[in-house]
Design a protein around this nucleic acid. Sequence first.
DNA 1: GTTCATTCCGACCGCGTTGGTAGGATAAGA
DNA 2: TCTTATCCTACCAACGCGGTCGGAATGAAC
Lengths: 164, 164
Amino acid sequence: MIFTTKAEYGVRLLVELGRQGSENPVSLKAIAEAEGLPLAYLERIVALLKKFGLVESQRGAHGGYSLARPAGEITMDEAVLALEGVVAPMSCFVDDSVDRKGVLCSHDHDAGHGCATKLLWTRVQGGMVEAMRRTTLAELIQFSSRQTSRQTSRQTSPLVTING
Amino acid sequence: MIFTTKAEYGVRLLVELGRQGSENPVSLKAIAEAEGLPLAYLERIVALLKKFGLVESQRGAHGGYSLARPAGEITMDEAVLALEGVVAPMSCFVDDSVDRKGVLCSHDHDAGHGCATKLLWTRVQGGMVEAMRRTTLAELIQFSSRQTSRQTSRQTSPLVTING
DNA sequence: GTTCATTCCGACCGCGTTGGTAGGATAAGA
DNA sequence: TCTTATCCTACCAACGCGGTCGGAATGAAC
């Protein structure tokens, strides 16, 4: 499994928050009951989202959480980054779009030829990040509302079956 | 981290195998020493590749492993599938390109609206699988050979930095 | 100003997976 | 028959995950 339940629960939490509108903050208890998730665990998860500035909190009675921005301006790469930390295919993987020293890798001992897997992990990460960046929270809210009705015709990516 | 060292070691093993040409089989010991990887662990990893039909083995003295197919015909989605098993973003994620029942998800209890994260995970998996399918073993071999020379100009995907 | 609902915070903990190791059985060339 | 290699199973420590617990701080309501 790629992501942990932090990403799953956290995104669902965001969706639930966005679904409520932006009137008054929603308590975690309400969300936990609506989604059937453990409250104490959700507390720790929402802290990640707050630290990253995706949600705002109101303490005390009638307090709760609300989106810090409109759902259309929250992309999933932000959310997942906040929830899971840096998403990298491999522990040795360092994105060298910043520091261009060629191949930064713990396996550089095999002198002569560089890290053989670098190209692969770069592409994989690129594909994932691109998919997350073009998905907004607003889309997820809309998607989860019109479920079970008609089939979503606009399939953005060809969806190759891997587990079949 | 998305993948475990199985994928890392396994792909490096394949690259090393492809680099040797297809004359006679290469022993794991040679690969382990070349890549600085634990031999006993490599044995278990190569077993996965063999079970999936990506490598062939020759037992006994002067035995070893060799690619079952030309490197250009081995795509990385096969390799990763053999090494890591089914790659899914989330444990509840089921690819419904086969069985179209709408949203198959363990979180279907929230009646009315479907699984909110389904769209996201579908896109993420699609992006990953696509990236792996278009990457052949031959590419990795070629890539790892011309390392440290000039910069690879043809960057297939825009590679957005996420950990910056 | 007490009460209650809520966010906030840190410690704890069982469990499964990961990344190895150990030891041997089997096969085949010299 | 010795050596080199694949094969196979069991074992193990360390770590992360998913979750709980207990208790602060905070603020609205009465």
